[in-house]
Structure formats: structure tokens, C-alpha cells
């Protein structure tokens, strides 16, 4: 497998997870979660700390990263999001409140890095997680495991939403909160669960991303435009759209930069972040509401010959 394709697959899977989390939170609570940035970074530091201090492969710590991300999501929900939702705050206020949370988490991350540097004699500010990886079937394990992790996780999420009572309640609340409330569904618990899953997906995404790119305290901060781009590209009104959007944005960056650098030379590498952004801008200019204008979910359903069901 070509190196760009291998790294691109990991990166795109990571973005798919993160963008899916953003979409889920936006659909359920109308909140554009800026804190996704620091939650992703924390996911990375969980697997880093685990691999360095606990030993073993980084993959052992992915469930822990998910749990910690979920915990951060719950804190954000009860401390911040819930009071604001009760007050019927506007979208921008909800967005700004998560920015405040993000800045606090960022300072915690930076302090934690200082602590690791000083007290543990580690170098946590520039980490290449791939050195903790092993080889599998002739390629680095991350290339196989991480897309698998993403697929398994997203399948589980899909099954949860479609097959379980709580999943159905969740979709009902997203679709129509008033009607769902009238039929006895506790919206509060649904939102909390959305934050658990959304935060967990952010942390998983960050952890996976650190296997592809250099891990720094601003890993999430630097990549949050792409997570948003993925979510917007996917249309913000369909969870599967968001996941697909994240994957497409991630793959476009790697494929685009690879082919463009073959044509124009290596200087293109510096402008790599322009490629997904142009893709997002082009999408938005043609469809000002993202790809939601196109019934992606229906298209995918038709593709597999499935009909009906509630669109998530």
C-alpha cells in the first residue's frame, strides 16, 4: 500500500469519527462543539500516557480514551449545555459556551504536558505515536486496525440507534423533541447520552488521528477546522452524512496533496489544508446548507435497496 494511502486511511477514519461526533451533537442539541478540539487532544494524551507509562500497544487504551471523552462530554452537558438549552439560548451562544470549555481543557492539557515533561522526564509536546505501533500483514497495524475500529464503532452506533429502545427514543427526540417528549421520552437523558457518545467519538478520533500525524498539545486545535468541514460537508442533518463527510475530507487532503505534489512539486505540501477547505467552500457555495440539500441518506439507502425507516 502506498504510504500516503495508508496514512490517509488512518487520518480519514479519525476525521470520520470526530465529524460524526460533531454532527450528532449538533443534531441533538443544536450545539457546534468547539470543545471537540481539546477532547480529541485528550484522547490522544490518554493513549500516549497509557502506552508510555502503562506499556503495551496504544490500542489497549482506546476504550479508556472513549470513556474519558464521554465523561468530559457529560461534564459539559450538565455544567454548561443543559442550563443553556433550558434557557433556549441561540446557536451562537451555545457555540461560544463550548469554546470557553475548550479553552479550559486546553489549559489543563498544557499543564499536564508540563507535568509530564518536568516530573516524568517525557517529551509529550511532539509525539509520533507510530513508534508504538507494530507491523501487521506487511503494513503498520494502524492502517488495518483503525479503519476497522471506526467501522466497528459506527456499526455498533447504527445498531444502537436502530435496534434498541433507547436508540429509537434518541432518534425520535432528534427528529421532533416536542412530539418525543409528549410520548414520554426523557429528552434530558437523550441529550446526556448524545454528549457521552459525541465526546467519546471526539476522543477516539483524536487518538486515531495521533497515529497518522504528529501529536502535539494543539493537535485538536489545529484539526478542528477539518472536523467542522467534514460535518458541514456531510450536511449536519444526517449522522451518516457527517461520518461520510469526515472520511471524504480526510481522504481528499491526502490524495489531493499526493497527486498535486506529483504535478507541481513538493511545495504544495505546505498548503495541504487548502484542499479540504476548498472542497468545503465549493460545497457550501453550491449548496448553502451543505449536502443536506441532497438526500444522502436516501441515496445510500436506495443504493443498498433498503426502503423506509426514520432518517437519522
Amino acid at each position: 500500500m502506498a504510504p500516503w494511502l495508508a496514512t490517509g486511511l488512518i487520518y480519514a477514519s479519525a476525521l470520520a469519527l470526530a465529524a460524526g461526533g460533531i454532527t450528532l451533537l449538533y443534531m441533538s442539541t443544536r450545539t457546534f462543539n468547539f470543545a471537540h478540539a481539546s477532547m480529541a487532544t485528550i484522547g490522544f494524551y490518554v493513549i500516549y500516557t497509557g502506552s508510555v507509562l502503562g506499556g503495551g500497544t496504544p490500542y489497549r487504551y482506546f476504550p479508556l480514551a472513549f470513556l474519558i471523552g464521554g465523561l468530559l462530554g457529560v461534564i459539559c452537558y450538565y455544567g454548561l449545555n443543559r442550563p443553556l438549552l433550558k434557557r433556549r439560548a441561540v446557536e451562537i451562544t451555545l457555540m461560544m459556551s463550548t469554546l470557553g470549555y475548550d479553552l479550559i481543557l486546553l489549559s489543563v492539557i498544557q499543564m499536564y504536558c508540563d507535568y509530564l515533561t518536568f516530573s516524568r522526564r517525557l517529551f509529550p509536546r511532539r509525539v509520533s505515536m507510530s513508534i508504538y505501533d507494530f507491523e501487521l500483514l506487511g503494513v503498520s497495524a494502524a492502517t488495518i486496525i483503525l479503519p476497522l475500529v471506526a467501522i466497528v464503532f459506527l456499526t455498533a452506533l447504527h445498531l444502537f440507534l436502530v435496534k434498541t429502545r433507547f436508540g429509537v427514543a434518541m432518534r425520535a427526540t432528534i427528529e421532533n423533541p416536542v412530539l418525543a417528549g409528549a410520548s414520554g421520552i426523557n429528552a434530558d437523558r437523550v441529550y446526556m447520552l448524545a454528549w457521552v457518545i459525541g465526546g467519546g467519538m471526539a476522543a477516539l478520533g483524536g487518538a486515531a488521528m495521533s497515529m497518522a500525524i504528529t501529536g502535539t498539545p494543539v493537535l485538536g486545535m489545529n484539526s478542528i477546522p477539518f472536523m467542522f468541514a467534514g460535518a458541514i460537508f456531510g450536511g449536519l442533518h444526517s449522522l451518516y452524512g457527517g461520518i461520510l463527510g469526515g472520511f471524504v475530507i480526510g481522504m481528499t487532503e491526502y490524495a489531493g496533496v499526493f497527486y498535486l505534489s506529483q504535478i507541481f512539486g513538493p511545495w504544495v505540501l505546505g498548503y495541504r489544508m487548502g484542499i479540504p477547505l476548498l472542497l468545503m467552500a465549493a460545497t457550501l457555495l453550491i449548496f448553502p446548507r451543505g449536502l443536506a440539500g441532497i438526500p444522502w441518506a436516501a441515496l445510500v439507502r436506495n443504493l443498498f435497496g433498503k426502503k423506509g425507516g426514520i432518517r437519522v
Binding site: L84, L99, L103, I104, S107, D114, F118, S119
Partner: peptide
């Protein structure tokens, strides 16, 4: 904070975050 090797300047970020949250919640 220096006892753990933490640079107190990061508190600037904490301050900004806390101000944003505090203003939104208590001083809209």
C-alpha cells in the same frame, strides 16, 4: 504550580475560558 513543573502562564487560557463560561451563564 511550579512544584509540578507547570508554567503558571497557562492560567491565562483558564481565565479566558472561565470568563466566557461565566459571562454566558451569569452575565448574559
Amino acid at each position: 504550580l511550579m512544584a509540578w513543573g507547570i508554567n503558571p502562564l497557562w492560567l491565562e487560557f483558564t481565565l479566558m475560558g472561565a470568563v466566557i463560561i461565566g459571562v454566558i451563564l451569569f452575565l448574559p
